[in-house]
Design a protein around this nucleic acid. Structure first.
Lengths: 298, 298
DNA sequence: ACGACACATAAGCCCTGTTAATGGGTACCG
DNA sequence: CGGTACCCATTAACAGGGCTTATGTGTCGT
């Protein structure tokens, strides 16, 4: 289906002229000069092979051919205009944020309400995925990911450091009479001994790391699942304390030690540099940075 | 109703790309380079404020926004394309010829069949009017008019000289025992004594002209009406003999004298110079000139 | 008769979109 | 597992076309 199309600029001029019944008015509407409209109409008339307007003294009227052409053109432009406006609306009205499940569940979910309240016209769509999002390949506006904050082509904003400390259920801690010092952990099951954070934390704590090697691995893929496991009493997990304040307060989770690990990475808000000025992206950025400033990291 | 429209060239590129699922194929269809399509799409994406395609390895897919846009654009272009083709068809398929009633009735009517036969796809619309047609103001393709053949902006072709000679009904001639010489006419009623051709003819015939002044005027406006009056026996009329061969052969009209007047004017085929290459105009011109060459003026 | 108004026309400039060349990335194939 | 082919992105330089300004022509209204 290959269309045989007339010059579109000419069609545009024709449509406006037919609708307004005047070259001059059409020129005004289109933001160009009357001469330009005259030129375009003439062009189109040559293409069509017949006059489209009858030039009468103080007005112009459509010829038969013009009459056939005009309504279809108006309708077509109306269609385009509507679809364009709608797409633009949707583009501005829906914000898709991709983030890791942990952040989505532990931080975003509870706070999104305040964003929606501040921007009632913006629909927010959260996509939780472990994958790193590629803005060129996925239909996503902004992403929140852990990393060092430098991704080519992306603008990033520091949100929270990815700090971590061992956590477990109070009941599990009780089985060994409470966790008083780091070494106590060695007597407990570890949710994911393969977690790269463990060696870092253990080293900070002055403990050996080799004992982890023998433990059964259970890669859960996301911190939130490890937290679930920890709350279920299945072991000790390295979690970011800021994400679990409520669970700690409610006694579902216990942070026995004050030693906080830090791998130098952090959660960053990221979006395509080229789109940094899109209103919805601005809105989200301003909101999330504001939230963090107020709450101090959750 | 002023439309907020996106850049049309970009829309065009987008539509083809969405339809074909490839920048490269779209470029081929549109007769431009792949780079140009890429550029236009990027432009449109900036206008819309959101990506329209997801660039995946060997293919591209529409984003949600793109999916909303694409069908409307295809439909709109299809609409434009159809209307354009139809207008073009109508422009090529209908020939409007404006002519004086005399020529229409006495010459064209009987011969148009041969034109239609030669060009079955062309619908012919004959408009008989006494007014001189202005191609800028009326919806007419070609005109046949008497004159000297020089009209600014028009191309003209000589058809027939506007010659004239007195004619009357055989019965009327009989009332004075036949018309043998010009002077006999002075004893008969004259259909339109105000016809400017009479002084010319009378002078050629060596007769006085003042006797016409007293005769009752009856301006009929067109030669064909004068012919009707003459055939009805109401008087002598100055007619172009070529137009009335049949009537003479059938005995309804009599040309008593061989003296033929000529005012230096002629019937010309005329059309806008700018449209001289329109197929339907070419066709009509070729046909009518051919007819005249064969028939020698009817 | 004159001014106001509307479209047509001509010349020239500037900008837009194009081309051409190149690079990056992925999938296919042997 | 490397080579090749395909597809899209990007860049710089170019060319063409559409726009503007200025002016002309015709008609209507006063």
């Amino acid at each position: 289906m290959s269309f045989q199309l007339p010059p579109l600029a000419a069609i545009r001029a024709f449509e406006a002229t037919a609708r307004l019944g005047s070259f001059t008015k059409a020129a005004a509407e289109l933001g160009m000069t009357q001469a330009a409209v005259s030129y375009q109409i003439k062009l189109l008339e040559e293409r069509v092979g017949a006059p489209l307007f009858l030039r009468q003294p103080r007005q112009i009227v459509l010829t038969e051919v013009g009459q056939r052409l005009a309504p279809a053109m108006s309708e077509a432009f109306s269609l385009i205009s509507d679809a364009y406006a709608s797409a633009r609306g949707e583009a501005q009205g829906t914000l898709t944020v991709s983030t890791v499940p942990t952040f989505a569940g532990q931080w975003l979910a509870g706070r999104l309400g305040s964003f929606q309240f501040a921007h009632p016209a913006l629909a927010v769509k959260v996509e939780s995925t472990g994958r790193l999002v590629d803005f060129d390949r996925e239909d996503v506006d902004v992403a929140i990911r852990a990393g060092n904050g430098t991704w080519p082509g992306l603008t990033t904003h520091f949100l929270l450091p990815t700090v971590f400390t061992p956590m477990l259920s109070p009941a599990l801690a009780e089985t060994i009479g409470g966790v008083k010092e780091p070494a106590d952990l060695m007597r407990l099951p570890i949710v994911d001994p393969g977690d790269p954070w463990w060696p870092l934390w253990l080293r900070m704590a002055g403990l050996p790391t080799d004992w982890l090697k023998d433990r059964p691995r259970s890669q859960l893929g996301s911190q939130i699942f490890e937290a679930q496991a920890a709350m279920a009493g299945r072991g000790v997990a390295l979690l970011t304390p800021g994400f679990y304040r409520e669970e700690i307060a409610a006694g579902r989770l216990l942070q026995p030690l004050d030693l906080i690990g830090d791998d130098g990475q952090a959660y960053y808000l990221a979006y395509a540099e080229a789109r940094r000025n899109a209103p919805k992206i601005k809105a989200f950025r301003d909101w999330i940075l504001g939230e963090l400033k107020v709450a101090g990291g959750g």
